[in-house]
Write a protein that binds this DNA or RNA. Structure first.
Lengths: 351, 351
DNA sequence: TTGAAAGCGCTAACAT
DNA sequence: ATGTTAGCGCTTTCAA
């Protein structure tokens, strides 16, 4: 007899029980006597039996997979922000016995051609979408009755769960830090204000200034950039420091990429950081550690974002009903040289 | 009638053909008349029918998945080297209609506790293992009759396909570059010589020196480091420059991490790079772009490594027989400031 | 070239 | 608490 992998029937035979009883044990159901459960588990481990995913899938109409959707540009960027988010999801999903299938989609409007194969093949039980994306993709998932969780993006017109960075708290932390260092002339490099996270950071910044009784001066508030990249930060900084109405002594950039661009411009302009201008970013990307001076920033727990989303999605799948939650992930202030403060880490309260 | 997703039977009914004929068309079999094929495809697209992966899986005993195994330390490091390799695999696998399931395992000897679930559940048709790993894991896969492809690691005692970086060519490129700049006193920071890739780089370095008639001086050849991290590079550099027998004018570090560590030490010792000492690394990691001066290095096409492995694995799965191949991925010299050469990129010949 | 029919290995009513 | 049985939606002989 060829060595065939054992099936549930082998376990049934060995224990003298029926397949359905074995199945009950496999699925951790309640209505099984302790004695029976023990016997079954013993037989399972003796036979080295493991149920096959595809058989379970066909019978139960579940795949055991979670789909993770990323736009191509997020996927391909050098900075591993979303990669870390993905890893967080992967790790947490595994704890819940799910596999994660990763795929990328067009940045723009969906072309029907490349609907993720896992949607067509019914090969996922739920979807996580990370980062800004065309709402068409959200609808695509929703229309298939799949639970969806967004990460770092929201679309108010769609009823869908989301996991957001605590952008507002982060911006407040940044302003508090600068204010505590004595700064009262604080500029903002906002970037693309159409992005939900950026918008929240701007709001938090404004609220922070207000709380400290600091005026928000329009000429120090650069909100006209179409993107949030390094170049946008550099351009914004040039604008800001060409102002004739005096200069800010500190700048909050709505993300690290723009902060780094700003730093480049300041170097060109021979404006010393942090001596002449203190600088704080947001995100805590790797590159911020390699610039000179190193960047003070708001740390985002990227893996945690992914893990939270996985947990939410698993809950949604288990519930079977499409409840909508909004979870905010806490952030920390990380003080490095660019702000001129004493080097420490302030842990924010859990959101 | 509730909207139920169409099955193969619906297609059969609609065309008046049998399920098995539809199946033949689905699987691109030959023995179907063109007319029938046309009709079936028409019906399929009209019904928006898509076969479900789990049904196919159960019937055909295939999963449509590829397993990607990484050790935990590779997985968690900040530098996205293996992440990029994974992405290359993911992308290429998708082209071949495979999904990729990622998992991590212990660095050390395998504990039976956490055998990747996809192995137990028969949920992969083949395995890619990236980076140095305990041979036990290779055996674990092989013993389950699964095709395996290694990336950036080999284990001569195991008959298994592998995709290697062209380490030797890269080291030669590095030496050629330094020699062409007039250096005749070239040191080596080797790191952990037990690693297959590092060993090849050392061999290539030695061959390069020989080809240029340059002596390989033991006191400039640091091979006693247990790892290949930044600290090891720093330590090795301290050793190298404490030598009483004069100093090298150039150094080849067997990877960028050690090159960066070396750079740190040189800064401490007030040795200017590239003025006093030229420095070349290997790998082209992100951090090399952020050090001052930026690192001249050997570029490794990380995504390509992953893609090649995916292609090999798909071939192995299709073949059904366990042939063994060894593929070498070409590398490029990337000249930046740390070597003092004119800034260019030399593309190596395809290996 | 096409069809009939027997599984693949589970789950989930339903019955006992 | 446990057993019986009918699928889940495909692939794959084997026959026609």
């Amino acid at each position: 007899m060829a060595t065939r992998r054992p099936t549930i029937r082998d376990v049934a035979k060995k224990t003298g029980l029926s397949v359905s009883t074995i199945s009950l044990v496999l699925n951790e159901q309640e209505n099984v006597s302790d004695e029976t459960r023990r016997r079954v588990k013993k037989a399972i481990s003796e036979l080295k039996y493991h149920p096959r995913r595809s058989a379970r899938g066909l019978a139960s109409q579940t795949s055991g997979n979670i789909g993770f959707i990323l736009t191509e540009d997020h996927f391909l960027q050098a900075e591993p922000f979303y990669t870390k988010v993905f890893l967080g999801t992967e790790f947490e999903a595994r704890r819940h016995q799910y596999y994660v299938l990763l795929t990328t989609v067009d940045k723009g409007r969906k072309s029907n051609r490349d609907i993720p194969r896992f949607l067509l093949e019914h090969n996922v039980d739920g979807i996580i979408i990370a980062g800004r994306i065309s709402p068409g993709w959200i609808d695509e998932c929703l229309s298939r009755d799949l639970p969806v969780v967004l990460i770092d993006f929201e679309e108010p017109s769609r009823r869908v769960s989301t996991v957001m960075i605590d952008n507002r708290a982060g911006a407040l932390l940044a302003v508090d830090h600068l204010a505590s260092l004595g700064h009262a002339r604080i500029g903002l490099i906002a970037g693309d204000i159409g992005h939900p996270s950026i918008a929240e950071r701007i709001a938090g910044f404004a609220a922070g200034l207000k709380a400290h009784g600091i005026e928000m001066r329009p000429e120090w508030t650069i909100t006209d950039q179409p993107e949030t990249g390094i170049e946008n930060g550099a351009t914004a900084a040039r604008k800001l420091f060409s102002s004739v109405n005096g200069r800010p002594t500190a700048i909050f950039a709505a993300n690290d990429a723009m902060a780094i661009g700003c730093l480049q411009t300041l170097k060109e302009l021979k404006i010393a950081v942090p001596r002449d201008v203190a600088l704080v970013g947001f995100d805590d990307i790797e590159a911020g550690l390699h610039v000179e001076p190193r960047l003070t920033t708001i740390h985002v727990h990227k893996e945690e974002l992914g893990a939270i989303a996985a947990r939410r999605l698993v809950e949604l799948i288990a519930a079977g009903s499409p409840s909508v939650t909004r979870t905010t992930a806490a952030v920390d202030l990380v003080v490095r040289e660019s702000s001129g403060g004493p080097i420490t880490v302030t842990v924010s309260k859990r959101a």
